[in-house]
Computed example of a mutant assay.
Amino acid sequence: MTIARSLILFAAAALAEIGGAWLVWQGVRESRGWLWIGAGVIALGAYGFVATLQPDANFGRILAAYGGIFVAGSLAWGMVVDGFEPDRYDIAGALLCLLGVAVIMYAPRP
């Protein structure tokens, strides 16, 4: 159950951070305005809170592992929301990052 909870929290954090950054991007780069920017800032704040709910208490480990989730999640977001088509190197890199997440977070430790 702990691994499942951790993965759900990583997914929620990724939605909040990537979604928040995308909203700010839309507000600034696509001139959608302050409402989009404000929503993005709120989502980014939610990301910071969600990260604290991870079962592991080691900040460095959580943020290091989350980096891999962020990489893969950003590519997925781009595919779903912006029509981005990753190439084989994008996919290979994301898979390597997810392997790193598994090693950092879920390898057996004494």
Rank of each mutant, 00 (worst) to 15 (best):
S31Y: 03
V71H: 12
G83L: 06
S6M: 12
I18W: 03
F49Y: 15
V24N: 08
L23A: 10
E17G: 09
V41G: 09
L44V: 10
R29E: 13
T52Y: 05
L75I: 13
A57V: 08
W77E: 06
G78V: 01
I69P: 02
G19M: 01
W22V: 09
G19I: 00
G78E: 03
W36T: 09
D56A: 15
F49G: 15
E30P: 06
S6W: 08
G45H: 06
F59P: 01
I18E: 01
N58F: 02
G40Y: 01
E30N: 13
G60S: 13
I8F: 06
E17R: 12
N58K: 08
A46G: 10
F49W: 15
L44F: 04
V41Y: 05
G67K: 02
W36E: 11
L23W: 00
A43Q: 04
T52A: 08
G45W: 05
R29F: 12
A39C: 15
G83S: 06
L53C: 08
M79T: 12
V50D: 02
L53G: 08
A64D: 00
G83Y: 10
A13I: 03
G19T: 01
A51C: 08
L44T: 07
Y66W: 10
I62S: 05
L63E: 09
A12M: 06
A76I: 11
V71A: 15
A16P: 01
W34V: 15
